Simulated assay, not measured.
Amino acid sequence: MRPVPEIPVTDPAVLADPFTAYAQVREVSAVAKLTGAGMPPMFAITRHAEAKAALADPRFVLSEASFLRPPGIPEHCQRYLHTMAEMDGPEHARVRGAAAPAFSARRTAAMRPAVEVVVERLLDTLETETDLLLDFAGPLPMEIICELLGIPESDRPRWREYGAAVSAGYGPGFIAAIPGIMASAEAAVAASRTEPNAGILSQLLDGPLTETELVTLVWHLLLAGQTPTNLIGNGVAALFSHPEQLAALRANPDLAPRAVEELMRWCGPQLLTTPRFATEDVDVDGAEIPRGAAMTVAIASANRDPRAFDDPDRLDITRPLGAPGHLGFSHGAHFCLGAPLARLQTEIAVTGLLRRFPDLAPARPETVRAPDPGTWRLAELPVRLR
């Protein structure tokens, strides 16, 4: 078997530029071994075709070890933590199949007016100099989740606090928020029975999901629904550093759907997929991932694989849609159920921002990123609006 090169993912140089680190390995091996302080080693697939195949390969399965369970979560909340992201096989198919109609392309398209209203309202609140992550991209997903769930306006201040706690990542604030989140999710499910509304919970009540599964779905939405925050932040920063692309999008907002896909490919927030475990020895282009080993797909590497994309390191918002698709929303049975809504939010947010503020510019020349080997995200995005 071919030797597997290592990538020290917590090394400052790799954290600062994971794309170069992965590219160097990708050209010699379709598989790398990721190592780093405070994390167990795991194998990463670096090339697009092999990565896409692995995400649909039943020999790689999820397990409890795939997900971080922060200590300190109260016992009565534990039953809501087993989301569909942690399921495989028939269990996953049943829960996903029941929830899927609430996230269909048709329903998402019907939410466009509501998303536009939320985006305009947030834009109205921005100061001349502002942190776009804190004041715009950060609050947006929680506002849309409240719309999706049918949360009454009187309850939304509390939900906004939950969104801020979740988007801040694992830490004391996140743990402290979990009991309140779960209690509010229980209340939302109960209210959807007694006072039906246009939210998805009322739509799902007559389906096969249990009460626990409905509450768990709300929890899953809060966790997975934060993607637009970092995609908008990364995308705006990328457009700042590529003024010709920024000018093209300003001149032709109809390019927005292509721009969102290209930004997700080029600077999507997820660097690595959730780890899966090999049920047997698996040969990937001559490199072995042994039975029991953890495997992840290096999305940041696969999405810039020259075997799949022409001139992959070039940001090009006119890049045609279609095959080969990027893996920013994963692939296979665990393709992101909320991808259409994440795309819609990002499209409306970015085009609205550029339309309202034609002189939008970074307030500082440098960007500050959170040191996270699994996520490509900014710590802040200070901008001048005019």
Results as ranks from 00 to 15, higher is better:
26 R>P: 04
26 R>S: 13
26 R>K: 07
27 E>P: 01
31 V>A: 01
34 L>W: 11
36 G>H: 11
37 A>W: 02
37 A>G: 08
37 A>N: 10
38 G>Q: 07
39 M>L: 15
44 A>L: 07
44 A>I: 07
46 T>H: 04
47 R>V: 05
48 H>V: 04
49 A>I: 01
49 A>C: 00
50 E>T: 00
51 A>T: 11
51 A>N: 01
51 A>H: 04
52 K>I: 00
54 A>V: 07
54 A>N: 10
54 A>T: 10
55 L>N: 08
58 P>R: 13
59 R>D: 06
59 R>N: 09
59 R>V: 09
68 L>E: 03
70 P>A: 15
73 I>H: 05
73 I>L: 12
75 E>S: 12
76 H>T: 09
87 M>K: 03
89 G>H: 06
90 P>Q: 05
95 V>W: 14
95 V>S: 02
95 V>Y: 14
96 R>S: 11
96 R>F: 11
98 A>N: 03
99 A>M: 15
101 P>K: 09
105 A>M: 08
106 R>L: 06
106 R>C: 00
110 A>N: 09
112 R>T: 04
112 R>G: 03
120 E>V: 00
120 E>M: 09
121 R>K: 11
122 L>R: 08
122 L>M: 08
124 D>K: 04
124 D>A: 14
125 T>L: 14
126 L>V: 00
127 E>F: 02
129 E>T: 14
129 E>M: 00
134 L>M: 06
134 L>K: 09
135 D>E: 15
137 A>K: 06
138 G>Y: 08
139 P>W: 10
140 L>H: 02
141 P>D: 09
141 P>K: 04
142 M>I: 15
144 I>W: 10
144 I>F: 10
144 I>Y: 11
147 E>I: 05
154 S>C: 00
155 D>L: 08
159 W>E: 02
159 W>M: 14
160 R>T: 08
161 E>S: 14
161 E>A: 15
162 Y>N: 08
